[in-house]
Design a protein around this nucleic acid. Structure first.
Lengths: 222, 222
DNA sequence: TTATGTTTCAAACATTCGTTTGATAGAGAG
DNA sequence: CTCTCTATCAAACGAATGTTTGAAACATAA
């Protein structure tokens, strides 16, 4: 086999451990130990720990971003300039996530957790990498959301878009823990796709909520 | 002055640096260096780095949790068993946040950022500490939300509650960055209270959104 | 077989980390 | 003053980190 399985064993193990403990809290020795490869293998194959982290993301995000791009092409072709409803945009996006073949044996939830970590734990190099690499696709998506909710004032839409992102990323990044609680308390086995399908009505309703009356006064708001 | 200002200089500096870079990424040497106190001062006054982190949270959360408790007392007394509308619960909660006198010169947004970090970066000891210390008040709040949305199925409400938390914590914890973007792109100076007041209609609408149809089938969701 | 390029390995390197130590200075009480 | 308790300080400690090294093992092709 041309590509040694050392590389993929490192990637698989790193991915799992990063999702469990975070990036700084996972040492190369823990990774290589659990993956049963030599410590130096990481630096040999990837160059540095930072590069390994980026490689873990790239394995998911590279195929995912081209997939999303295609879906958006398809959507724009189908609607041919007509306004695309927000829930259609979101459903397309999320079903792309759900139906993506996972590059690893780890499920979707691990990837979701990684995305959440990337956003909150993002230290300089990571944020820059994600932005440079996948920024355009992301902006194309937010533009679609923008057009799908053009009745909102610009500032309001800006904030609601981030409320939406927050609800999604936050619950995805704590997904494993939340799933366990839900299963224990309500005896219901919740799959990732179920959570996502619960998420869509929530954010769709949020996006089309009545506008707030912003109090200009600065005294108490009782 | 009985209490040396070494303690508060450490707390102030640690708080700022934690919010900027996270806990693991902030070393005691960076903190003590910037606070212009001796390195050993942290271990002398707090005992350990973990204890310092908890102290940073306690300075905010101790007064805040008693405040919230009082507000909930007030609310229950006022409604006297009658159902309390969700937006009233949320407004009470958020206005308690807004009107809390900050224990430091740092604004609300630093505290929000810390809360977000605590939730996502929380490893063992931190999560346990927050749960032991402030769990009861938190559960009382979620119980109020539960009663204010009793028409929802339990599982659905569980997830929506966390969508709500996600939207709040996420946007609050990225608030500094988002405020800058909003100001630059839309020329509008947005205050923390404005964001919160935008948030309330969003999550209120989300909580009362129509129920999703959960697809039992596992094929494509087009 | 020999030669060449790639991969693995144990060991060490250079930093950085949180923590501890022991000496020094200061304040307040008797 | 003397004794005692508290706070500060420079210095060091031991452990853990990411990275590098140089030799050994392996594979591939001439």
């Amino acid at each position: 086999m041309a590509q040694s399985d050392t590389v993929s064993r490192i990637l698989d193990t790193a991915e799992t451990l990063f999702a469990e403990k975070g990036f700084s809290e996972t040492s190369l020795r823990t990774i290589t130990g659990k993956a049963k490869v030599n410590l130096a293998a990481v630096n040999y194959h990837f160059g540095s720990k930072k590069a390994l982290i980026q490689a873990v993301f790239a394995r998911y995000l590279d195929p995912f971003s081209v997939r999303i791009d295609e879906e958006m092409d398809r959507l724009e072709a189908e609607y041919q300039g007509q306004p695309i409803p927000l829930d259609v945009v979101l459903s397309t996006f999320t079903s792309a996530i759900i139906t993506m073949p996972s590059p690893t044996k780890n499920g979707l939830s691990v990837f979701m957790r990684l995305l959440g970590l990337a956003y909150t734990q993002a230290q300089g190099h990571m944020r820059r990498y994600l932005q440079d690499q996948y920024g355009p696709v992301f902006f194309r998506f937010t533009d679609m959301v923008k057009n799908a909710s053009s009745d909102l004032p610009d500032v309001e839409r800006f904030w609601r878009l981030h409320f939406m992102l927050g609800a999604a990323i936050f619950s995805m990044s704590s997904l494993e823990a939340l799933k366990d609680i839900a299963e224990q308390d309500y005896g219901e086995h919740t799959r990732v796709r179920d959570v996502i399908q619960r998420l869509i009505p929530f954010v769709t309703a949020g996006m089309s909520a009545p506008l707030p009356e912003l109090a200009g006064a600065q005294d108490e708001v009782s």
